[in-house]
């Protein structure tokens, strides 16, 4: 039994995939706290789809995928941030247009130029195959960047998330803080896309934070809890992915959904912590 569980650790691609999944789960858990509390779940979902357009364009143009999709993702994130702040049209409608158009462009590019069937599926649903040490370093670098932003701008992020209007009049540069958060979100999606897949990444942004919210009434504890839950989902999900021979994205999401259901049932008598 133990031998069976440890068997995949012989393979370097699995060890790399497991490291990326665990780090990506923790990263999405951490960033997801802000996504959930700011009511940005739809932005997270849309942004992951928008980045797919950049991924497709980079793959076909022969540009480094992380670089190309990263520039595309950052541009999409800043555009979404600008549109949601201006409130000229409904934010959900604007995000829907920007992100689904980018996603559609990605699909169209693959359809017209073809030749990338494997990477197409991997981008949509996540895959452990082909994950190399460069991917581990990339997600680790984004993890350090996100952690640095959360630690160094802790109060500004908290104040802007809780009460942006009062934060603004209290001297917090809320537009800059929002833009920084969008860049962290875009970088996190980009780094996690390989193993989680663009269609499923929103779930890992939302589930760990939501579970942590049900367990604590403290913001600081929610950050730590969501990070830990995300890491556990990534680790367990990647192991299950190997043993069940199912793509990594769906298994990680299903592990998260199971944790959510368990905590929801266990806490339903008392409602959200502190409530």
């Amino acid at each position: 039994m133990i031998d069976q569980l440890l068997a995949p650790f012989e393979f370097e691609f699995f060890r790399n995939g497991l490291a990326v999944a665990t780090l990506a789960g923790a990263l999405c858990g951490l960033v997801g706290v802000y996504v959930v509390l700011k009511g940005m779940s739809y932005i997270g979902h849309g942004l992951s789809h928008a980045i797919f357009g950049g991924f497709a364009a980079s793959a076909l143009l022969g540009v480094n995928v992380l670089l190309g999709a990263g520039v595309w993702g950052a541009a999409s994130a800043l555009m979404i941030s600008g549109v949601t702040r201006r409130r000229v049209i409904g934010a959900d409608a604007a995000i829907g247009v920007i992100t689904t158009a980018s996603f559609a462009l990605g699909i169209a590019l693959f359809a017209v130029f073809g030749g990338a069937g494997g990477s197409f599926d991997a981008a949509l649903f996540g895959s452990v195959l082909g994950v190399g040490s460069a991917d581990v370093w990339a997600v680790a670098a984004v993890w350090v960047f996100a952690l640095a932003v959360v630690v160094l701008r802790y109060r500004a992020l908290l104040f802007t998330t809780f009460d942006p209007e009062v934060a603004g009049v209290s001297g917090v540069a809320t537009a800059r803080v929002d833009a920084l958060l969008m860049l962290v979100l875009a970088a996190s999606i980009l780094a996690s896309m390989r193993v989680l897949g663009v269609t499923l990444i929103a779930a890992i942004l939302v589930i760990p934070a939501t579970v942590a919210r049900m367990l604590t009434s403290s913001f600081a504890h929610m950050l730590v809890g969501a990070t830990a839950i995300g890491a556990v989902c990534g680790f367990v999900g990647m192991n299950l992915s190997y043993h069940l021979d199912v793509q990594s994205g769906p298994t990680i999401v299903l592990v998260g959904a199971t944790v959510f259901a368990g905590v929801f049932v266990a806490t339903r008598q008392r409602g959200p912590a502190g409530g």
């Binding site: 509390l37 109060r155 908290l158 104040f159 809780f162 009460d163 934060a167 209290s170 919210r213 604590t216 009434s217 403290s218 913001f219 600081a220 504890h221 929610m222 959200p272 912590a273 502190g274 409530g275």
Partner: peptide, 12 residues
């Protein structure tokens, strides 16, 4: 429903 304690809220 936002998860903040009184101390965390005041410290903002």
């Amino acid at each position: 429903s936002f998860p903040v304690t009184v101390d965390e809220c005041v410290l903002m």
